[in-house]
Write a protein that binds this DNA or RNA. Sequence first.
DNA 1: TATGAATGAGCGTTCATTCAT
DNA 2: GATGAATGAACGCTCATTCAT
Lengths: 204, 204, 204, 204
Amino acid sequence: MRLSKARKECVTAMMRDTIFEAASSVVDKHGTAGLTMDRVASTVGLATGSLYNYFDGKSDLLQFFYTRLVEPFFQPIEEIARTELSAPQKLERILHAAWEHAVKYKGLIRLFVAGDQRAAIRRDTRPRLLRILTAIFKQGIREGTLVPRNPAHMGRMFHGCLSELFDLVAEGARNDELNEYVAVLIDATIKGFSIRPENAPESN
Amino acid sequence: MRLSKARKECVTAMMRDTIFEAASSVVDKHGTAGLTMDRVASTVGLATGSLYNYFDGKSDLLQFFYTRLVEPFFQPIEEIARTELSAPQKLERILHAAWEHAVKYKGLIRLFVAGDQRAAIRRDTRPRLLRILTAIFKQGIREGTLVPRNPAHMGRMFHGCLSELFDLVAEGARNDELNEYVAVLIDATIKGFSIRPENAPESN
Amino acid sequence: MRLSKARKECVTAMMRDTIFEAASSVVDKHGTAGLTMDRVASTVGLATGSLYNYFDGKSDLLQFFYTRLVEPFFQPIEEIARTELSAPQKLERILHAAWEHAVKYKGLIRLFVAGDQRAAIRRDTRPRLLRILTAIFKQGIREGTLVPRNPAHMGRMFHGCLSELFDLVAEGARNDELNEYVAVLIDATIKGFSIRPENAPESN
Amino acid sequence: MRLSKARKECVTAMMRDTIFEAASSVVDKHGTAGLTMDRVASTVGLATGSLYNYFDGKSDLLQFFYTRLVEPFFQPIEEIARTELSAPQKLERILHAAWEHAVKYKGLIRLFVAGDQRAAIRRDTRPRLLRILTAIFKQGIREGTLVPRNPAHMGRMFHGCLSELFDLVAEGARNDELNEYVAVLIDATIKGFSIRPENAPESN
DNA sequence: TATGAATGAGCGTTCATTCAT
DNA sequence: GATGAATGAACGCTCATTCAT
């Protein structure tokens, strides 16, 4: 009895996955605005009503999507944040983790980041990511590896550059382009843009 | 006769403004997905059909919104791009122009950038902005004021940092926070993040 | 006082004509489904509401259209019917009158007969025309000039052939084509289709 | 499984029929201009949206109507046209086929031919029918069974007479009246209207 | 559980008509 | 009379959700 219950839950979970994939391909084909329950159902090969055995409704399904995309992104990043590495090393590792995630989930990202979903995802993702980044910049200042500047703002900047990585993916960039972007980003992050500080414009 | 015609046009223009504001408050309350013609109309205190005296349809209304927000942003930026300034100077000026725009249109930005509209706006805005920034980075490399790195990527990074400025506004940041962010951004852009290059992590 | 009243009525009548013409050109441009009060008004150079000073509403306007097209058609035909001519002569005269009307009102006919209005017009026109034609066929039988066959049916046939004349106009046929059609119609009406009766098929 | 699928299709087809009939009665009551999806739905006893399970949209529904009425009319006629019969025989057969169709589909015809739909149907039907008739008249001239006159015009005349048959039906004529009309038509077609050609009026 | 027809509120849009100016 | 903005019911159509089978 217990076993059969467990099995049932397992089957349900797999079904949610299947539906999730179907929904992905629907968004792929018809855009996020074209994601209707009917289409999802018929893509899975299920009747419309059956979806409601696995999801409470459309918004539940969307929530599942979101989790699916976002959690595997945060997991390695939060792990990196917890290590004993120096701040610059953490930043670089995070950059690489993001890059790996971006490459791996290219499809999903193209789906959401390019779509209208982007706003929702970003809304949830940004504060969480900023918190992590700010902490790292604080650490960097504390340990003397990063220039002492408002760490929250530094986190924002880094976040902005990170976001562009996903835009690049959403645009359909090739892997080597992504690679190069990350390299440039690391380099510029560390060395700045200008040839030499003395070239800096005086503030007006 | 002429005068009355002019007056009429003026009234129409004001009405568009009124509707625009109503629509803003609708988005505020119900999100962009909840922006329906009916709601807008009833917010203005008009019948649904009356909206169509001022806008050709929903997409026209949206277009108006967009123009309202985006064009005054690009105008000074494109002007700066056309000047004879050095690349770093241009970047700084652009940053300041963006900051001014962000402060001035705080409400609008909060509306759109925070909302789902963001995706649409960004979709149109980003390529245009990237083109400008890339050109500036190219110029910087040519004139020897900026480190020679793939200018498209540098443009992207800068764009990412710029985007965060608007996110900051959308979050409801105070003016002095914005100010500080811009200052930090300029500083970090020029000098980089690290205390010294030798602190840079070795790539793994 | 009286005079000014008469003058006013006259002005009103002229206005109705003007509106009528405007409406015609609207139908011309946008099809009958595209005949809206707004368009009519703006074509006349009048405000929408002003139309209602001259017509009680859209249906009144349409009624006016109809009368305008149909009455000048029936007038000569009814006159011909009242003469002392023989039935075949009357038929021929009617045919010519119809032809003249068709050529003269080519525009209007193309407007209505080709449009969806056709049904309405035909609905009103047919019984009236059939009554006239039936009477003529009765007369022809009485006077021995037409083959004695159910005059109502003969009227119908003649009416059917007549209708085609207007279809021809609606198709945009040239005058000489119309001419030829009438000639053929007269000829066939009198002589029949077959070379000789003995070629007639035996009823199955 | 297969069976149930077949059954489903059958049920769908029946539903289309039911909707079709409901739509007919709506047209009956409110005229073709009053044929709205809402009214059709509520006549069937369905929600508005449910119609769209059976038809892609209003135009699809209308198309169904049209096909329903027109195709069974053309089928026998085109078959007759393909036979080796003489032209007069073909004409007579066509006449009978039309008569049969008219009697069989009395209801439909009353619906559409009497309504505003007529224009639309006729618009599609006429050229197709004229092509067939013209070919037959050409054949008749070639084989010497029909008087050599512009075959296109002769086709038009015949078409006009044929149309009247349907008007007769639309008027609610009894079968024997229709019968008589066809008989008269055949007779007159072959023999002409006049007692003798010498009674023909001289053209003025 | 699976089904898929039925639902019905909601959408954007049109347009004949009214009425304060 | 003339105006034209305002009206509001009606339209065709969509789609998340329900429920009898």
